[in-house]
């Protein structure tokens, strides 16, 4: 019993003594040299953002289309003119805006005769000459996406015919104005 105790205390004393001595363990060999990494590409900019900027410069140099897709709202009436001078007009039902993507598009709806027709317009497509905002409604319907107007009392009418009527009325008004 006493022997064990003395052994223990002896061990403790020794361990304390070892800790108090500072030792230096030399490295086994020289450390390998580490070469510097290559300089960061694009100044460290996100690859998607960088490419998106480049593509916007190509497909939308004036920034007009980007402005359009950000400012237009569901309910507006727009007219899209293609490179071959043909055009379509319709009321916006929904706008899809992509992040770092030229895939942003506008869904327009109109009626040809009685048949409703919808068309998705890729805003940055080089086949499109220009997109113009024709009319803003006096009061917007609720929600960002107007899918619910389909086949309801708020449904779109024949936009082409509506615009034609409007134009002829305007012409009439100006004529009467002149005669007065």
């Amino acid at each position: 019993m006493f022997g064990l105790l003395s052994k223990r205390t002896g061990f403790r004393a020794a361990s304390v003594a070892v800790q108090s001595v500072r030792t230096f363990v030399p490295l086994k060999g020289a450390k390998p040299t580490v070469f510097e990494p290559l300089p960061k590409k694009r100044n460290g900019e996100n690859a998607m953002a960088y490419l998106h900027k480049q593509l916007l410069k190509k497909h939308d140099p004036t920034g007009q289309r980007t402005n359009l897709i950000n400012t237009l709202r569901a309910g507006d009436i727009i007219r899209v003119t293609y490179m071959d001078r043909s055009d379509v007009s319709g009321r916006i039902i929904a706008i899809k805006r992509g992040q770092y993507n030229l895939g942003g598009n506008i869904l327009i709806r109109t009626k040809v005769g009685r048949i409703a027709s919808e068309l998705r317009i890729p805003v940055f497509n080089p086949n499109i000459r220009f997109i113009e905002l024709v009319e803003k409604p006096k009061q917007y319907l609720p929600r960002n996406k107007h899918y619910y107007v389909r086949e309801s009392s708020n449904d779109v009418n024949d936009v082409e015919a509506y615009l034609k009527n409007k134009r002829s009325e305007e012409v009439k008004q100006t004529q009467t104005h002149k005669t007065k």
Binding site: A47, Y100, N125
Partner: peptide
């Protein structure tokens, strides 16, 4: 792989495309 984008060629045709860094 960094994500997918819309790609337009000169004829105005539209493709899904993948961006690789």
């Amino acid at each position: 792989k960094r994500g997918m984008i819309t790609w337009f060629n000169d004829n105005g045709r539209q493709f899904p495309a993948t961006v690789i860094e």
